[in-house]
Amino acid sequence: MRKRLRRRKGGLVDEPDYALVGVVRIPEIEKSPARAIGRRVLWALIALFVCSIVVYLDRDGYRDVKESPLSYLDALYYSAVTLSTTGYGDVTPVTESARLINVVFITPLRVLFLIVLIGTTLEVLTERSRQAIKIQNWRNRVRNHTIVVGYGTKGRTAVDAVIADGGKPADIVVVDNDHGALEAAATHGLVTVRGDATKSDVLRLAGVQYASAIVIAANRDDTAVLATLTAREINPRAKIVASIREAENTHLMRQSGANSVVVSSETAGRLLGIATITPSVVEVVEDLLSPEEGYAIAEREVEPSETGGSPAHTKDLVLGVVREGKLYRVGEPEVEEIEVGDRLLYVRQGGPA
């Protein structure tokens, strides 16, 4: 496997791909053990049947110790002891044609038979190489994906929201140090990278330089700040969304390069306060934040027929207009007329966009 080089030597990204097995994990489709064993047995029986037919058709070239003509049962018996490499010697090829067929046809069948029977052992022995090849292929093609730092409650919810909004699990990479969290992510079909997201080597393994979006869902604010700084240094173009516990750290996250900052403690506290007075408002907010059902907040491009009109006259309930990367709320003078290139923030029916 070829090495991935970068300016600073000695990091994880300098390691050959086979050394990354156990650090980077590519999801696989789970296979039923019973089905896998059944498939191997079926192939073994097919090989045995084909071999017995070949021997029977050329039965005149074989000699039995009893000096009697070969029956199909004798051919089946010979095939079984030959493919299993038992070889009692009571039935042997004596003519040149029979021996040629034995070398050209039956010997490859013997090898196939053995591979099928000991396939589980071979699969275990070759797993590391297969994973290394998968890691290499993934690193070559990963582009415009989403990286989620931390797969705790916030990270899992963020992944669910991305998938519910039309994202593919294969386009999401989870970075975490916790083995249990990575196992949970892998079972949902996500690519995982084990390591500290504050280190550039780990983020580069996750393909942060090619990512389109990065979600920082760390458990500590200082970790979130360092991870954001590192990610922004490597990828100046990606959209970085971060969650922090304390509002006083919001400016640090902004200065570190986060495009959006969510204060989890204040948001939860605000909803708790509202729920004591108007619990139905909280239900609506939760509905808007759950795209699978009810209503959801989404963003779309302006249709040609909407250009020049007011946001209030569109077919959707528009909450704001995004113009040149800045959000203007409905009612502000800047968005009395919709312009070409604007994007509308609106309320839509729940379900995939």
Rank of each mutant, 00 (worst) to 15 (best):
T82I: 11
L252T: 14
T267Q: 05
A247W: 02
A296D: 12
K3P: 06
F105T: 15
A181D: 02
N137C: 04
V21P: 13
S32H: 11
I277D: 11
T157Q: 10
R39D: 00
V261R: 01
V91F: 12
V162E: 04
A185K: 00
M253K: 10
V142K: 15
A258Y: 11
P311G: 10
E248C: 08
F105H: 09
R6K: 14
Y151C: 09
R139V: 10
D58Y: 13
G11D: 05
Y62A: 01
R39V: 12
T126I: 13
T82K: 11
T230W: 07
K315V: 01
T314N: 05
Q255D: 14
G207F: 10
R40N: 04
L190N: 02
T157H: 12
G207P: 03
A211R: 10
A185L: 00
I172C: 07
E324I: 07
L117Q: 04
A353I: 14
S243D: 00
S129F: 12
A242M: 00
A44F: 05
A217E: 09
T314V: 05
D60F: 13
G10M: 13
V81W: 05
L73I: 01
Y328K: 08
R4P: 03
Y210P: 07
A268V: 12
E233A: 08
N137T: 13
V124C: 08
S32N: 14
T92C: 12
R348T: 15
V175C: 00
V149Y: 02
E183K: 06
V215G: 07
A211D: 11
L70P: 01
P169Y: 09
S264E: 13
A185H: 00
E324A: 10
L70H: 08
T230L: 09
L122E: 06
E283D: 15
E266K: 14
P311E: 02
V65E: 11
L289V: 10
W43H: 15
Q255A: 14
V81E: 11
A161E: 03
Y78R: 15
L76M: 12
E28Y: 03
V285D: 01
D221E: 03
